[in-house]
Amino acid sequence: MIRDALLIARKDLLIEWRSRVTINQVAPLGLLILIVFAFAFDANRNLLTKGAPGLVWVGVLFAGVLTVQRSFTIESADGITDALRLSSISPVAMFLGKAAAVGLQLFVLEIVLVGGAVVFFDSRIGDPVLLIAAAVTGTGGFSAIGCIYGAMSLGVRVRETLLPLLLIPVVAPILLAGTRAFERALDISTQAGWNWVGLLGVMWGVYLAVGTLAFGPLLEDG
């Protein structure tokens, strides 16, 4: 199963690498969100530095919705979903593979966005280990739940508007916990950050469990 999951992840990443959609469109959009926030807050340096963790996660959230959408758009064309179902690959492996591919893309995006926060908002990385742990657990959870809803909106004409409506309320706890952990890692608050990483890890586990159960039935109809 792990081999199959890696195959799916490799396929998705290869498509992304060749099409360059994440690098050329989604990542610049994430940076653009940071810049637009500077306009919204009248380039108030103190305010932007203080709000940087939240702004980074909002950027991840919106760019993440696009990444999930993209990951399932490539499946819906040319009956690829049916072809995958006809192959011997189990739905669980497909879910894990797709979640891993989305998660890896979002992790790279987060590195870009944190870099953007350092440059544009004068953020200072005080605890890099905490920062990476929060980024890994947060994006892991996001990609797992994102893939469940991505499969749910497969084959639906109104997917572009439906997916954000379904996904954003569900990932709100990730945004909240990720922001609090980043606040500690970027030396903005002195509150414990590892508790939030623990909570992100629990969410990741729950979403992975739900996904392994739900992905098969969702694909049956796709």
Binding site: I148, P169, V170, P173, L199, V202, A214
Partner: peptide, 15 residues
């Protein structure tokens, strides 16, 4: 999924 998520929302906002 929304129902399973509610305790997580509750716990995070409670914290």
């Amino acid at each position: 999924v929304s129902s399973v998520n509610l305790p997580l929302v509750h716990f995070s906002v409670d914290w």
